[in-house]
Design a protein around this nucleic acid. Structure first.
Lengths: 150, 150
DNA sequence: AACAAATTGTTTGATATCAACCTATTTGTT
DNA sequence: AACAAATAGGTTGATATCAAACAATTTGTT
């Protein structure tokens, strides 16, 4: 008597027409797949983003990392606490400016990142698997039009 | 000597190629504009979403609301605490099932929602103003392809 | 009818995030 | 040189969220 799948007779009103709602659903899906994809590494998009940016800009300071990954400076503190506790990152005292830290990946951090990259590629592939190549390009373009600041 | 705007020589690595990163940027922008758009109403996407779904489904219970807006049941408790404190929503005891609450908007809640709707429309318009009508359609389609479950 | 299993709303504990403030240090002005 | 202003990292407090456990109630099985 159709009791299994009728859970969604709920009217979402105008929500499905709102871009913000769509984006939130999208992010939920992406995040879930990300965590699965990275498996046992206890990784999150935030931690991963920090690793990527530090690798690409060794020696950068926390404030610049914060701006790059669009997190508050205070949030970056806790992100780095986590990464440093896992021995993936080190905070070296700034040479020229003793207020700042020079961030670098440890050998372990570089290694983990290297192991993660193919998994992230798979993850990305999985997300866009229902889109043709041109559709993927279009999506990126449209998102870029709405939200500049690359 | 170019010290004002050179803050972004930071290499984001592969981040800009990741859909999840793009979506996060998008959400940040949407959220910021949402809050501005709704002005003094102390509104957030979550609270607004709950109001919309309750209006469209008067009498629904918290568990169903949670599923609809994709929040945990426990999160819905705090959302409703907020909305009820502001006298926008009431939790009526369920008639048939005494475990559940029947949610309804108060008169104030209906009125606020009515006042909010045009602002949300403006908000939405502002977001997609750089896209043509067909581009808007395309974007919605592509997002829908990646993330079903409307 | 009795009792095991599921469901509902809630509480508690954990994590992620922002904003405001703090101290140490550096930079800029006089 | 002296000192005001800006900057760096950090701490604290607030909010949003999830997950696990819980009591009350309902449903299902015998």
């Amino acid at each position: 008597m159709a009791k299994k799948t009728d859970s969604q007779q709920i009217d979402l009103g105008l929500l499905p027409t709102l871009l913000g709602y769509r984006l939130r659903l999208a992010q939920l899906a992406v995040f879930a797949d990300f965590v699965v994809s990275t498996g046992s590494a206890q990784m999150t998009p935030s931690l991963f983003g920090a690793l990527v940016v530090i690798e690409a800009n060794p020696g950068l300071k926390q404030t610049d990392l914060a701006r790059a990954v669009r997190l508050d400076r205070s949030t970056v503190v806790s992100v780095l606490d986590t990464l440093e506790k896992r021995q993936l990152v080190i905070r070296k005292r700034g040479l020229t400016d003793r207020r700042s830290n020079a961030l670098e990946l440890t050998a372990t951090g570089k290694q983990l990142l290297a192991e993660l990259l193919p998994r992230i590629e798979d993850h990305e592939q999985r997300l866009v698997q229902n889109l043709s190549a041109s559709e993927q390009t279009t999506l990126a373009q449209l998102l870029g039009k709405i939200f500049p600041a690359d």
